[in-house]
Design a protein around this nucleic acid. Structure first.
Lengths: 157, 157
DNA sequence: CTCTATTCAATTGCACACAATACAAATGAG
DNA sequence: CTCATTTGTATTGTGTGCAATTGAATAGAG
């Protein structure tokens, strides 16, 4: 057993047996909350004919149109295996054009269509509707955000 | 616009335009953190030949063997569309038997095999290894857990 | 300037999540 | 007791996530 692991184990106040009780997991609530949030977004995003992942990609493009697949992936922590088919669906809906960079032929340059730009208008009410459903104080929301970001920055290294 | 929604909107300190900035989303870090955690579990669970979802199901069964598909679903907030194929895979690995209740023929009774019971021994080190990788204080972990549980209890109603 | 290494995206394969639907077993109102 | 309703699983179809592999384009070492 590596030293760091031993340290971690020794700091764990739970017995080994109790450690695999669902009740004592932190990651399970995180996973369930994420699932629950995506489920809750669904009826809101159905009006825009977007899935949650597609909505995330659209947010990136509304913010910085003309970026590459890699850029979107870096922003959303998703790889081309996830993004390529997703972007093809957005292209199929007429929201995005998947062009090529002139400097580097390998790079896909993602450009919003007029419909893609216009969809932002319909999306503006979504965050407020979601905030309404989730019923957490602003303090709690910001704290949750900060803790999740800390988890991400630790694990993404 | 429904009244409750108006209330939520008016409490939102962000402009409508800023509301769809990725930076201002709470759910995105939650979603990314959940993905990052599952990715981090992968190499640990590969040793047990389990996916994260399968690991969750096994934890339920280690805790309460002999329950039904519905019981597992209620515990993990998952439905039969997710659980049926997952349980068939666990059955295929020889970890679980998918029997029938004698009282009610519709009910699948899930019973751990000897191998399924024994796998718990190998799983005992996983939580400590994970805690080591996630590098959060116990305080932060408990706070994150509590906030996620609050999100779940609000959205699952 | 050539050849190798790296990079960006696409593809493939597997395992979820989940809505929608189907279906058989059990329940219950009349 | 009977049949409509409810309940517990299973099935189907769509859309992710992600590892692994491939392939083409570029960059870099010599």
């Amino acid at each position: 057993m590596v030293p760091e692991m031993t340290d971690c184990v020794s700091n764990n106040p739970l017995s080994a047996q109790d450690s695999v009780l669902l009740e004592n997991q932190v990651c399970f609530p995180l996973y369930s909350a994420s699932n629950a949030v995506i489920r809750t977004y669904r009826p809101l995003l159905d009006k825009l004919d977007l899935t949650y992942s597609q909505y995330l990609v659209m947010m990136v493009l509304w913010e910085s149109d003309g970026v590459s697949v890699k850029d979107v992936g870096a922003r959303l922590y998703l790889d081309s295996g996830t993004l390529t088919p997703l972007l093809k669906r957005l292209e199929g809906k007429g929201l995005v054009e998947r062009g090529r960079s002139e400097q580097d032929e390998r790079v896909r340059v993602l450009k919003l269509t007029e419909a893609g730009v216009l969809l932002k208008t319909q999306a503006l009410t979504v965050p407020a509707e979601m905030k309404c459903k989730i019923k957490l104080d602003l303090d709690e929301l910001l704290l949750l955000k900060k803790l999740c970001e800390k988890v991400i920055s630790t694990l993404e290294k």
